[in-house]
């Protein structure tokens, strides 16, 4: 029997193939059941109009009981959105990826949550502790115990 994470991700992938992704979200790369890439755009009027971001998902064998490691891709093509909950290294401070994670959530539902987090942003700026965090941050954002900046995300 395949690992639970594989069977579950197979199902999520089949759902995406059969029903497509919600607008503004596209599957970039899902060659295995360890790392996926998706792109994210905020539709309609928002501070991020015209910007395209990429998200990297990493899954442990314990997925979906354990949350995926999710971060914005920062490379020569993509940048992390300028947002009070997004660090310049792409790490995201969102309770849904930590204490508020539920195993019924999926890759797509995480994308939608992050999309709406960007859509509702009123002030494009970095978290106040950005420099300090980025200087000492672990490579995997799941290793960080975030103190959530507010209850909204």
């Amino acid at each position: 029997m395949a690992a639970v994470s594989t069977r579950r991700l197979q199902k999520e992938l089949a759902d995406i193939k059969n029903h497509g992704t919600p607008t503004g979200i596209t599957l970039l790369k899902a060659d295995d059941f360890e790392t996926w890439y998706l792109t994210l755009e905020v539709l309609g009027e928002s501070l991020y109009k015209g910007e395209v971001f990429a998200l990297k998902f990493r899954f442990e064998p314990g997925y979906p009981i354990s949350s995926p490691a999710v971060q914005f891709v920062v490379d020569d093509k993509f940048r992390a959105p300028l947002h009070p909950h997004v660090y310049s290294n792409g790490h995201i401070c969102a309770s849904i990826l930590g204490t508020e994670w539920s195993p019924v959530l999926s890759v797509i539902s995480v994308c939608i949550t992050l999309q709406s987090m960007l859509a509702s942003c009123k002030d494009k700026k970095r978290p106040p502790d950005n420099d300090r965090y980025v200087a000492h941050a672990p490579e995997n954002p799941k290793k960080t115990q975030f103190v959530y900046h507010d209850d909204e995300v």
């Binding site: 759902d15 029903h19 919600p22 019924v104 999926s106």
Partner: peptide, 17 residues
Amino acid sequence: RSSSSPSQSQTKILERI
């Protein structure tokens, strides 16, 4: 959830899964 996120589209996706 106190999150602002569970928009309609999310509920739909969840239903699909």
